[in-house]
Structure formats: structure tokens, C-alpha cells
Simulated assay, not measured.
Amino acid sequence: MTIGVSTPLTGHLAINNEPAEGLAAYADYINEQGGVEGRRIELKTVDNQGTVAGGASSARTILADNPFAICVLTTPAFTGAQTVLRTAPDTPALVLANGAAIKASDLPNVFGMYTDYTTESFAGIKYLTELGGKKIALVYDPTIVGEAGDAETDYAKSVDAELVSMINVPPTTTNYTPIIQQLKNAGADGVELQVGVQAIAGILKAAKEAGLNAEMMTYSSMLDSSTLAVAGDAAEGLYVTGLFPQLSASTDQLQEFNRVTSGDTHANTALGLIGWNAGMLITAAVKEALKDGGSLTPTSFQEALTSLGGSPGGVLPEIGWTPESHSAIDGGSPDVYTLYQVRNGAFTETQRP
């Protein structure tokens, strides 16, 4: 069973290759056990450079070999791959990108293996208001989460808050002092950070130096030791919305993930776990398609993936897919996220106020 993987092996989004590393670790793990119902998972990896053009070209390369399925990583690459994927409507596409972008594509063969960043921004805004925030700012990297807009503004109003600033932070940004000044000028008392780990660290350090008095919240990709390592003491007090469990969780699934990936610094990460989880869902769907003497085809595989919605799957307590929508694994609900805070240099699960 060949799955083509379009992933950023190079470029400024190369850290987002970690889900591909997690998926590869899972494929090796399941293949060593004889595969899925006797079928080996073979991955063909092509660099998409984390760009729109790279997404299109890598998708063409992969689909030319007629794979069983294709996996696309990063939102820019998926944006580029969409037109190509439309030419192969029978090929299942597993996408680790912003669920909002997947939903907007309206491609019925695409399954979102990650969160919808708009939904997660709602969760951050909601939790910040529960912490006492009334004037919320959204700081975002458009190459990761897309463009912010009216949806966030309207949601803030719905929870009796005001979105006072939306600050676009390109991934090439190195000077974060002007961002802190904008937050001060806006009077922000709560800040949702949807940027990469280097920007998280830079903003937190600049905020600490400037004495910015505002709660800081970030999204689930940052629930990783790399955030603590790069941000250092400046991360203390940072809140994080998390959908996927921490790597230190004591569940059987997490213990097995850690056992297999221990020592692999690229797979044994929060992003790597997302790829591993995708592998687990692929396995579950194959087994579902073959149940009761069924046959494994692209169509039966897609039907089986859809059927996983509403039930525990992979490392998650519930997969948020429905027959009508499978663009994001969070099901579009801000309330499915767990709240964490950095305390004494570690992520600690925190009760919502």
C-alpha cells in the first residue's frame, strides 16, 4: 500500500516535516509486525519546500505513480496541491494542514489530520476571556494559519470580548519589539499567538523585557519541549490549547509511541505524534474496510475513514469527522481543547477558570 508524502524537507517550514517522520516511524513499526492485515505501508516522500509551488509540483510527481493515497503537509503546500488533487478525485488525500483551508477547498476526498486553526483561535480567545481578558490581540503567521479576519472578530464579540489587534508576523521576522509596542498601543490584556516556535520565543522574551502585562496563549503545535528549550524562562506562565495529548501522558498509546520513537529527535515530538496518529488512523481504516470480507479500494478506504468519526481513534478520545465534514480532526468545536500552562519549566494541565 503505497502512500505518497508531500512534505517540507527543506525551506523555512522544514520543522513541519516532523509529522512525516512520525508517520515513517509508524510505518516501520507496523511493517515489522507484518503490516496492516498483511499489507505493508510503503511511503514515497517528495519535498514540497513548504511552498505553494512546491505543493503543486510534489503532488504531480506523487500522483504520476498512481499511489493508493497521498499525504500533504503544511497549509501553503496544500494550497498549491489543491488543483492537482482535483484531477484525482478517487485518490484519498490525508492532509496535515489548517482545517479551515481544507474546508474551503471543498474536496470530498480530503481528510484533515490536524486542527482547524480558526477553531483553535476561537478556543484561545475563549480561554483568554475566561482568564479575565477583554481586549484580545491575535498575532499570527499567515504561512502557518492563513489570514485572520472577520471570523475571529465576530467570535470575540460572542464571548463578550473585543479583538483589538490582528498582527501579521511573517516567518522571516527577527525583531519583535515593534509587535510588543503594537500590543501595548492596542491595550491588549490577552494575546493569542499562532506563530512558529522561534517567533513564540522572540515575542515572549520581548514582552518580558518590555513589561507587557497580558496573558499569553498559543496553540497545540507548541505543546512540545522545543518551545520550552527555545523560549527558556520567558515561557513561564504561557498558556497552550492542546488537542493531542502531551508526550508524557501515561496512556498505552503514548507509551508505545515513546518506546518506538525514543532517541529519534525528529519523530519523538508533538508534531511527530501527529504523523504517528495519522498512521494509526490509516491502520484503523484499512481494518474497517476489510472487515467481514470487504475489499480494500480507494473508495472503501475513504468510507472507512469517514466511519471513524465520533469515536476514539489513534491517540485521541474522539475523531471529529462527520459524513458531511472531515476537514479537521477537532470537529469545529473550541471546547474539545485542553488548557495547559507552563509552570516551573513544564507544561501542566490546568483547570479552566
Rank of each mutant, 00 (worst) to 15 (best):
D106K: 15
L94H: 06
S58G: 02
T177S: 15
Q198F: 14
G279F: 08
S248C: 00
T153L: 13
L9F: 08
V315W: 04
L243D: 00
L308A: 02
T75W: 14
R352S: 13
S295N: 13
L94E: 08
E215N: 13
A56Q: 12
Y176G: 05
L163E: 01
E318W: 00
G133P: 06
G35C: 01
T322Y: 12
T2K: 10
A328C: 09
L316T: 00
S333H: 05
E236V: 03
I41R: 03
A207Q: 03
G55R: 06
I180T: 07
F111S: 12
G38R: 06
E42I: 03
T269Y: 14
T261G: 02
L193E: 03
I70Y: 02
N258R: 15
V52F: 01
T7I: 12
D90Q: 13
G11D: 05
L281K: 09
P76T: 02
E130C: 06
D292M: 02
T283P: 00
P142S: 11
M113Q: 14
H12F: 08
L94D: 06
P312V: 07
I41D: 06
V139K: 13
V72Q: 12
N66P: 00
R60M: 06
S165W: 00
G34N: 04
A267M: 09
R343E: 09
P19G: 11
Q82M: 13
S262W: 01
L163S: 04
H12G: 03
T143R: 11
L281I: 14
T348V: 15
I62A: 05
P323L: 03
P245H: 09
D252H: 00
I41L: 15
N31I: 04
V110H: 08
A284M: 11
A81L: 13
A161L: 05
H266W: 06
V286N: 07
F347N: 07
T115V: 15
T91D: 00
V5M: 02
P323Q: 07
I180A: 09
L273V: 11
Q246L: 15
Y114N: 14
Y29M: 07
A229H: 06
